[in-house]
Design a protein around this nucleic acid. Structure first.
Lengths: 231, 231
DNA sequence: TAGATTGTTAATCGATTAACAATC
DNA sequence: TAGATTGTTAATCGATTAACAATC
């Protein structure tokens, strides 16, 4: 009914960061289509849904192989599966959340992780009154138990939601334990050295780009320097 | 000691999104330098701190005017002030947080807003047991009071942290009240139409790009398609 | 077969880097 | 003045869009 995955050969060019950043958005839209029992979609239809060009969609997908069929379009379920595979949503990655403050709790409670196929297994903190409790069904361990925990369980991702003052110390610990993925919400910017994946999230940076846009709206037309505010 | 701001004339090209997204990072680094009492910095020095090219720094800054001085470099305090101005950090923008769930509370409590010069003035929710309480010193109003609140107080930014099921309804309300900036954390993607600034944050999208990177690390060298994982 | 739509190449556009003249 | 470093132009690189032949 539709062609088999024809993986690009391994000597092909690396995929750009720009493309990879767009993949989760395809993932979301495809899941939405799936939930509406839409079985097929053309790049043209998807492009109007997502506000991007059909050409970009086809280019993006073809970085990873031919997922569509001429004259038909894309099978939504098949494409969703392929993108899930590319993003590792079917790998069952396991995460721990380090820091049981407000943001740590919010993340632990949210559907962010299950929605993307990541399992949160435990939380860690230093406060004696929090350690030993449960948050969203997760046991909160003392940070001193992290090493033992990592030795006994697979931990693919550490989520850093500790105060800035603790960030460097905790990051060094996480590095030393060989955890390969770090989702860093602290203000202390981490650099990915060696065989490690780091994703720094500065919420304030995002807020400020919004402020810039708001300011641009308020400026008289003649003083505007920004492009369209569309995200 | 250093030259006055020479604003580019208003017919100059619009500033690209790429540049604007980098401005908050300059803001952070400059503030950090300031806190360390570093008075001047060259693009070369800053570039090695930030892991970008000196050329890019100079190009970025020159989109907004000549902030440096030949032979000297940049006055940190002056440059910080200029970037603050560009980003609207000195505008004293006022925000309300809509949704007093875990993420709403986390944002209300965090230093994200004060760190970037934004004032959170109030929270809104629908749950009777939360409405009327205080969170992080902020009164929680019933969402039905939003209109009256907006009519009596300046609200530049609405932070949307409500369940997905409520997102569209609340977004429509916020639009109708004329609030110009929306920081949207719901899964319901908003499009900026007309004179409105929207910033959609999909935490899960960020998580998935991290998963992609982790997966790339685990893949045998021959199957890798990604570029460097550096954020 | 005819129509539709992909996969892919080529053209365009934009962003980054390099280089250097201007100048503090 | 000599040295340093910006501001800015030109060159390079990469990403997006357009176009169309391949093909389902």
């Amino acid at each position: 009914m539709y062609q088999e995955l024809t993986p690009k050969n391994s000597t092909s060019k690396p995929v750009s960061k720009a493309v990879i950043n767009r993949l989760p958005r395809y993932y979301r839209y495809l899941r939405d289509l799936l939930s509406k029992d839409i079985l097929r979609i053309s790049s043209e239809e998807l492009s109007s849904l997502m506000n991007v060009t059909a050409s970009q969609i086809r280019q993006d997908l073809n970085c990873f192989g031919g997922f569509g069929q001429q004259g038909y379009g894309y099978n939504v379920k098949y494409l969703y599966g392929k993108i899930s595979d590319i993003l590792g949503a079917n790998e069952g990655y396991r995460a721990v959340i380090i820091g049981a403050g407000n943001l740590g709790r919010a993340l632990a409670t949210s559907s962010t992780f299950p929605n993307r196929g990541v399992f949160v297994k435990a939380m860690f903190d230093i406060h004696p009154d929090i350690v030993g409790t449960e948050i969203a069904g997760l046991h909160v361990y003392d940070i001193s138990e992290l090493q033992k925990y990592v030795e006994n369980s697979v931990v693919d991702i550490a989520v850093l939601v500790v105060p800035n003052s603790q960030a460097k110390k905790v990051a060094d610990l996480v590095f030393s334990l060989g955890i390969k993925g770090i989702w860093n919400f602290t203000g202390y910017e981490l650099h990915s050295v060696g065989n490690i994946a780091v994703q720094n999230v500065h919420m304030g940076d995002l807020l400020m780009t919004l402020c810039y846009q708001v300011r641009s709206l308020n400026l008289p037309e003649s003083e505007r320097k920004s492009e369209e505010t569309e995200e």
